[in-house]
Write a protein that binds this DNA or RNA. Structure first.
Lengths: 349, 349
DNA sequence: CCTCATCTTGAGAGCGTTCACAATATGCCT
DNA sequence: AGGCATATTGTGAACGCTCTCAAGATGAGG
């Protein structure tokens, strides 16, 4: 193994016959550089294959060119079966990277236990050592007031995903209420008059908004509350199975199920299969997440497709803008998609 | 937003009444520090909440405390339907983080287009700016000879996942042949005499080993080659559907299908449903991947569970060891699991 | 052609660590 | 007690960049 010679800004400066500072101006797109000089420097950067050293940049100036994304440790594959899952990390990464790439930023992911005394110390350490230009908080961390307060006090620009209420943050979210209305009406239009909703945790903001919209849509259609039973599946497969079994055992059971995430939609498919109910003939199912895998379920799930990549991309874009001194704070909505596949149709009889 | 006061090593040194260097020794677990002094310094670190600045560390010493993971850009959710998927990023992250955490390392993920002229320049830039202590190459990058050669020349410790042949690398892999033997025998024991294999790309190392083992297992059982048709699904859903349809149209079609990844297993489920074949009654299906989502398929897939998290964890551990000056190169096998769920049973009649 | 404002460039310091090496303290042996 | 090896601690430089501020070049207006 040879040692690779590292090209420094000094090398480029010497080669181009200018000072470090001028080279720095060029690579940072700074003003006040003669076009001819800029071109000469750029040629040398290209020729020598110069790449600025991030650590040195961080030391010299203020920026680190790093975005830190805080994710829930519990949401890993280890807990998939019993609990939740981070199966959208993939999408997140894609959205974030695409945005970061064009600004020469990088994303560092950190898995943090939520609702623990160790969360803030853990994050504090990560921030202390990395000194990122911005932090992205994904659910459920974005709802942790103690945490967001702490970050605010640290003066680190912070983006919350799926959260949209006040404070000095970048908030990216989707129109949960609108999506729920659209989904409910879709079912209503097909003729369903009993629709069950398997909801996420009571405390989870997006779920709250969806529940409210669900209620409203049914009321608008002149349906009584009993037409829209809500079961707390809390995003868990097992819990959803249990709740749904009960729901289907009532005198007038729902003919359609809206699940707050994919896993609970799978639970619906599972329960239906167990009871000999055919989907969508005997039971329609819609999911509110649409991670890639569900597209291959049998039958393929009709679903609201969460704009995860778009939300994270936007979060990065704003955070980067802020690090450049622009004012990027505010709330930003990303458009969802309603994808009708094969699990919804008009009810029996 | 206030500006957080950053605690430096100097502050700790002053508070503890020692020099910078001594503090440095303590936080790096260096030798030659009196127990009493060490304790005093540690107390001050704790009290002041000191966290070493990674950039400064990188500037001063040699290490960056960063591991760079190179992933295939094509394998993102955007291409899920038509192509491959990065749905194991989650598992990867989990395995890598858990290992990195305890050494205060961090992981940076980069999405790179494979088989492109831009791959090496892209990686070169990432490495140049991040200067990671190690690089993890995931499929298919790990099979890119030009790339691995380049990295080797750069003198950057490099881990290849799912690759195990020669060179100065850290290689982590699973026993592909053993897994395939186990799976095939399982089917054989159930009584299957015609087994189809939907394989990944011809050039993909692990797939090659699995095909060979598949052939061997059948031969050992005294079965002719015709008893084990192999179809190139190349990890694609659509391609697998097509190939499988043909396979099932032969005079004596397979009664069991082994799929080289989950997506092709889903394809098998899909095709079966389309033909009115019940799984596992009329067709047994086994997958060779077991990403979290498949556990909720209907019916739940029997599968070989790839030790993704374990492999990445091991890769990180070795890379970190190497950065500390130890010799961590070599090949390391991670144990797979065979999880029998509900898609395999004895063949009809 | 001179003056002043503006554009362009450069010089030196500083960021927070670790490195190499020098200085001092300690312990053991005779 | 003297002398030497070893354990412990401190000092100054270096890492590669950007910052601040000063110096020099250029151009417009009188």
């Amino acid at each position: 193994m040879q040692k690779p010679k590292k090209v420094t800004i000094e090398d480029v400066a010497t080669a181009a016959g200018v000072s470090r500072q001028t080279v720095s101006r060029v690579i940072n797109n700074g003003p006040n550089v003669k076009p001819a000089v800029r071109q000469r420097v750029e040629a040398m950067v290209e020729k020598l294959g110069y790449v600025p050293n991030l650590s040195a940049r961080r030391m010299g100036g203020g920026r680190s060119y790093l975005i830190l994304s805080i994710n829930d440790r519990a949401r890993t594959f280890e807990n998939w079966t019993s609990g939740r899952g981070n199966d959208w990390v993939d999408q997140m990464l894609y959205g974030g990277m695409s945005e970061c790439e064009r600004h020469n930023y990088h994303i560092v992911l950190e898995l943090i236990d939520t609702d623990t005394d160790t969360a803030i110390p853990q994050i504090s350490r990560a921030i202390g050592s990395l000194r990122p230009d911005g932090v992205i908080l994904t659910p459920p961390h974005c709802d942790n007031g103690e945490l967001t307060d702490w970050l605010d006090r640290q003066g680190i620009p912070c983006a919350r995903v799926g959260h949209s209420e006040g404070g000095h943050f970048v908030d990216v979210f989707m129109d949960d209420a609108g999506a729920m209305r659209e989904v409910t009406r879709h079912l209503l239009d097909l003729g369903h008059r009993h629709i069950g909703f398997l909801t996420g945790p009571l405390s989870y903001g997006p779920s709250q908004r969806r529940r409210a919209a669900f209620r409203e849509a049914l009321a608008e259609a002149g349906l009584p509350e009993t037409a829209g039973p809500i079961g707390a599946g809390n995003f868990y497969f097992d819990m959803a199975v249990e709740v749904l079994e009960q729901m289907l055992d009532t005198p007038s059971p729902p003919t359609a199920i809206i699940a707050d995430n994919d896993k609970m939609a799978f639970a619906a498919l599972h329960v239906a299969a167990g009871r000999g109910l055919k989907v969508p003939d005997d039971l329609s199912v819609i999911s509110f997440e649409d991670t890639p895998g569900v597209r291959f379920s049998v039958p393929p799930l009709t679903a609201i497709r969460q704009p995860t990549a778009a939300m994270i991309g936007k979060a990065c874009a704003q955070l980067i803008a802020i690090s450049k001194g622009e004012d990027g704070f505010g709330a930003f909505e990303a458009p969802y998609e309603f994808v009708v596949r094969s699990t919804t149709q008009m009810p029996h009889g």
